[in-house]
Design a binder for these strands. Sequence first.
DNA 1: ATGAAAGCGCTAACAT
DNA 2: ATGTTAGCGCTTTCAT
Lengths: 359, 359
Amino acid sequence: MTTLVRKEKTLSIRDLARHLDISIGTVSRALNGKADVNPETRKRVLEAAKRLGYVPNQSGRSLRQGTTNTIGFMIESTIETADTGGTFFMPVFEGVQSVFRRHHLDLVALLCGTDEDPASYLNRVVTRRFVDGLIISATARNDPRIDFLLERNIPFVALGRSATVGDYPWIDLDFEGVAAAAVERLAGFGHRRIAIGTPASDLNLGYVFLGGYKRALADNGIGFDPDLVLPANGNEEGGYQVACALLAQKPMPTAIILVNENMAIGLYRRLYEAGIHPGRDIAVIGFRESTQSRFLSPTLTCFRISLRELGIKLAEALLSTLPAFAGQYPQERTKLVWPMELVPGESDRFSLPNNIGSA
Amino acid sequence: MTTLVRKEKTLSIRDLARHLDISIGTVSRALNGKADVNPETRKRVLEAAKRLGYVPNQSGRSLRQGTTNTIGFMIESTIETADTGGTFFMPVFEGVQSVFRRHHLDLVALLCGTDEDPASYLNRVVTRRFVDGLIISATARNDPRIDFLLERNIPFVALGRSATVGDYPWIDLDFEGVAAAAVERLAGFGHRRIAIGTPASDLNLGYVFLGGYKRALADNGIGFDPDLVLPANGNEEGGYQVACALLAQKPMPTAIILVNENMAIGLYRRLYEAGIHPGRDIAVIGFRESTQSRFLSPTLTCFRISLRELGIKLAEALLSTLPAFAGQYPQERTKLVWPMELVPGESDRFSLPNNIGSA
DNA sequence: ATGAAAGCGCTAACAT
DNA sequence: ATGTTAGCGCTTTCAT
């Protein structure tokens, strides 16, 4: 037969078969690694495919197989995350991707705009059969997306717990443990009036964080004072507001724990304006260690986590819920609280006499 | 006919047609707003579709039409951008999305991992016909992706210029203008030894930034000193290194311009360690205004840009290259340098006597 | 204004 | 081990 190499048009499997003078069925089987193909034939096919730059059309495959080989990672760019979310998600994304790549699954980030309802956005993505599975993040205390995905039986894993009931896989940071460790450390330094900066929104992590804080207070014999709970956005501006709230209290708390390390910048700023030095006049503990936290003055005491590892675990948790991969990842529904490790900085390095700083 | 509502399976257009007892062709035409449909029929179809939750299968459409109605926004998570890139891209993404949504185009972020070659990643995405068009970012001085996309005739727009030749649309920040404005401002304050922190990598923006700096020096009668060009990564760590380099010079430069605002944090840190105060002992000008820059101490003099607007322009530039939309967006190939507006902060607020600070 | 039918590219079931 | 063919869901001719 004639050597048919089309220009301008991408090669179809039919073109490839014609070029090799064999049937398209055999070509398909050869490319997909099926067993019943002559090794010689397979070699020819793979070589020709490579040489001619043949790549299967994903739409054709999807239509036939009912799967897209694409996983969606849904990220909401809310006020809470717009500024700073990227620094968190990029490394997680990398970890997820490193696992999926081995299985020829493509990962796409689905950024739901602030002017679109997350639930209806998700609905569109899912019903169009755009992805085979989903990773959702920024779980709300009550998250309709989870109900929706469970009901439709769509494979997914949540980055973050939720109060929404149901048997679904999730992985979450150990907000509770972080709050507890921070309180314990500060209490050990003699602090009694320990404030806490929590998210202003309905994110579930706020509730968990607050819960850990309260428990740790009790464990350390410190009474809970609702005035010391300071809700704010998890960014620099929020930190500034938290500092304002701190300064307004009499006596001022001697320590503050932040649920978000970016708040530290705004907090520092406001404190400096008031002539108060973190690490000398007030103890500050931030949340996640970052390049930033290490270069602030004073360096921020915070908690270390490998986001890439987290991403890898997320991917594995999802794979175990995908029918095509459950065999290779035979785990239970993952329900995992990811531990974080304290990294001492300069921001909380001072002790109080026992009798100072109590309420 | 019987009312056939399947469970567990998503509705196909065939199901919908059967349910309405009309042909699938008519249903398709009704849903796609074709003219030759009885208004009455169309109403019935749309109602039933809504009620039963019918959503067309994207794979079916794509296979038939040869388009996916999906645009890819390729973001590389390099060392340069991993930490901080998100803060930049999220708002841009929002802007892009707001335009595409009107045209029922879905936007997905394609994050190329650090362990994957950007060009081959792009190749995969394109040849699989996964997207109809692309936005690429982090353009290198010589960027093979541009050659590839031009050769394959794939609609795309670049966020960032490149030395790669060809008639392709791009939008870029005004690095040159920023460098020039910064130099001019500092020269006006009496500075003569003005250092510059540039990217260590081969990003095109580094060359453009440096070019603007050199020209502005000349315009202000200041000689160019290669020792004052300090390459570093565009993150906190890079800023720290820049500060180290500054401190090593005798006499120390009296001003520094950074190509990336995140560097300011590391720079501040190192300067504080050396007892040198930005805004008092040395003038600092950062790059992009952010929540961060406003809350640093001292606040950072930097440049404002509406990233959302930038995203909107990017989307429009791409649409004008897509055959299906070129009619609605009949622009020339966009080649646009996006202006940025100086936002004075506290970090460069001091003047030198004329005879101090000269080389 | 509607129906009938072809066919996009691919895989899998069946036949040989 | 290979060829043949049906059909995934959809849009778009071409009839009527």
